[in-house]
């Protein structure tokens, strides 16, 4: 980080700080409400008392929410970890080829890939289900493609290809061609060059893709509810069953919402610095 302060007068600095702080507080408002409501007993968990701190603090809602949500959390891990790693692998290879090992029509192909980012998924849900069911039958693996986590991973990885390719490609463009060329002269092929030159410097781009994909896999509801079954439901579907059920106490809904969000928030805190670094290194610049 290049901190070039000092040039400006103190009052201006404090104004800046003050404005940032104000927005910080505004950004945290929904979280404040989520948190305090989740610790309230039933009688206090009501929109009318949204701003009040609990008069009696209780973790009862958290206990119930945890009980209801736990199976989904594990399913989400099984979904989001392999899913985001696979996305990284595919995106990295695509990005590498499309930036450093071009073939005729590579630009057109890249443009065609990118367009995939923009289709509305609700519109493809019915044929997608049919395709996955057909894959179940064609492969003889019942409950894998349709009704299982692998199918959901497949959908996410495929629809994630455009954005992941974009991020890696834009990042790899910044690697000097001389390095690649030198490796070639040494007789290294496509994969060796990737392994020895490109992969070692890919950290920031991986961080951006992992954050992006992990978040969207973890938070996705639409694919999850259509493509999986009750045993393989991830967190969001379970959360919907808690929050969407008529007359579930608000404190439980909010505790469950926080629980469901903890893993992604942890990822942001842990990888946030790398995320910024990746953005600065040109990823997602378009």
């Amino acid at each position: 980080m290049t901190a070039v302060g000092g040039r400006r007068a103190k009052p201006l600095l404090w104004t800046r700080f003050g404005v940032l702080l104000l927005f910080g507080v505004i950004f945290l408002i929904p979280i404040y409400v989520l948190l305090v409501t989740s610790f309230k007993p039933l009688t206090e968990a009501d929109p009318g008392q949204a701003w009040n701190l609990p008069q009696t603090w209780t973790a009862e809602a958290w206990r119930v929410a945890w009980e209801k949500l736990a199976p989904g959390l594990w399913n989400s891990v099984l979904l989001a970890v392999p899913g985001s790693l696979l996305s990284c692998a595919l995106g990295s290879m695509n990005g590498y080829v499309l930036s450093k090992w071009r073939f005729p029509g590579a630009d057109v192909l890249f443009t065609l890939f990118l367009f995939g980012m923009f289709i509305p998924y609700q519109g493809v849900m019915i044929p997608l289900v049919q395709l996955l069911v057909w894959l179940n039958e064609a492969t003889g693996l019942q409950g894998v493609f349709y009704g299982g986590i692998p199918g959901l991973v497949l959908a996410h990885v495929v629809y994630g290809i455009p954005i992941c390719t974009l991020i890696f490609r834009n990042y790899y463009v910044t690697i000097p061609d001389e390095l690649i060329e030198a490796s070639r002269v040494d007789g290294a092929g496509l994969l060796r060059t990737y392994w020895s030159i490109v992969l070692p410097v890919s950290g920031p781009a991986f961080a951006v893709v992992i954050i992006w994909q992990f978040t969207s896999l973890w938070n996705d509801f639409l694919f999850a509810v259509f493509l999986t079954g009750p045993q393989s439901w991830p967190t969001t579907v379970m959360l919907n069953n808690i929050a969407g059920a008529q007359a579930t106490p608000y404190s439980q809904q909010m505790a469950a919402a926080i629980l469901a969000s903890i893993p992604t928030m942890v990822i942001y805190v842990l990888l946030g610095r790398f995320f910024m670094r990746g953005l600065m290194a040109g990823a997602l610049k378009g």
Partner: peptide
């Protein structure tokens, strides 16, 4: 797809059992 998914299935571990059709 299956070749791509081989990876996912390995990574998925227990997922295979948990997702048996009813």
């Amino acid at each position: 797809m299956v070749s791509v998914l081989g990876l996912a299935a390995c990574g998925g571990g227990g997922g295979g059992q948990a997702t048996q059709s009813p």
